[in-house]
Nucleic acid binder design. Structure first.
Length: 305
DNA sequence: CTGGTCTCCTGATCGC
DNA sequence: TGCGATCAGGAGACCA
């Protein structure tokens, strides 16, 4: 989404309040996750007061950052603030089915609006972008059919920084030392560690299995038993799997589409994910499938120790 | 504190 | 053809 940088947000519309976490919300979770506690009988907590700028209305987008699976749109408020001050952030968590789509504005008729939970309109860049019609604006859509994703408001970049500091290092930058530190004295399965965003940020179920296969590590192996050489192999495997998947525009399972509406292609290269019972691509032995860390897990008992 | 389990939601898929 | 049941997945809430 580098094309967003420099644009001014003209309007922001939230079509579903419960995809948003606003400042002051009592829990860290998305609003809809609150109505679940004991004694809550359909009575939601009072919604936090939202300011237009919370959804970036009137702001100019100055940057788009990513940490792990989270995307942050950094914007400068409509006030007098300049420099690093007065900057705020809207965090986008895509979950498993979420996506951002950039279309021209006014929108063509055929843009699907089903499951669009938030929508922004933006002015064209001052310097006409090559791709955009002169004078034309763009619309950004947040669509998330399964609503595992959501938006989170940060009124300053330091708040965003605190939020991200609670996550582990980004999966593309994680070092063997990071991994060993997180694994030290941990009894949990190494796969659980990979999936835990506070240990390493950015690895989901598919890529955990693929990385463990490449590193020849058994998913259920207790994390504390991971030796330095294995940590080197695993961090390298995480990085290469993710980079290849990004290059292939992701893994399309069922209904996923990228921002351009196209399917990813990495699912064709999965070595183990979704292939339980089939022959291991390396040794041809039948791949095992079981639940590890509450997730479907596929591995080769022969290749992965 | 640690680690395991439950829960949210919808689309795809399968059995009847 | 249609319908109901089942499953998948990210991550916060909750519990032992």
């Amino acid at each position: 989404m580098p094309r967003l940088v420099g644009l001014r947000v003209l309007t922001a519309r939230l079509l579903r309040r419960d995809v948003l976490v606003a400042p002051g919300d009592p829990s860290g979770g998305f609003a809809r996750q609150r109505g679940r506690g004991p004694g809550v009988n359909g009575r939601a907590a009072p919604p936090a007061a939202l300011e237009p700028a919370d959804l970036l209305e009137g702001c100019r987008i100055v940057n788009v950052l990513r940490h792990g699976k989270q995307l942050a749109i950094i914007a400068r408020g409509p006030g007098r603030g300049s420099g690093a001050h007065g900057e705020r952030a809207l965090l986008v968590q895509l979950g498993m089915s979420g996506g951002l789509t950039l279309v021209e504005h006014p929108m063509p008729e055929d843009v699907p609006l089903l499951h669009v939970h938030a929508l922004w309109t933006m002015g064209a860049k001052a310097r006409a972008g090559a791709r955009l019609r002169p004078g034309g604006g763009v619309a950004l859509l947040f669509r998330d059919p399964r609503r595992f994703g959501g938006l989170r408001v940060f009124r300053s970049c330091s708040e965003l920084g605190e939020h991200w500091a609670a996550l582990g290092p980004d999966a593309l930058a994680v070092t063997p030392e990071d991994l060993l530190r997180a694994a030290r004295n941990s009894e949990r399965a190494i796969k659980a560690l990979l999936l835990d965003q506070s240990s390493i940020a950015g690895v989901g179920n598919i890529y955990a299995d693929e990385a463990l296969f490449r590193a020849r590590i058994r998913p259920a192996r207790p994390a504390r038993l991971i030796k330095p050489a294995a940590a080197v192999a695993l961090t390298g495997a995480v990085r290469s799997v993710l980079l290849e998947a990004i290059d292939a525009k992701g893994s399309t399972l069922r209904d996923y589409r990228g921002a351009d509406g196209l399917r990813g292609g990495f699912q064709l290269r999965h070595a183990v994910y979704g292939r339980g019972g089939q022959p291991c691509p390396s040794c041809a032995r039948r791949l095992s499938e079981a639940t590890v860390a509450q997730r479907t897990t596929v591995w080769c008992v022969n290749c992965q120790r």
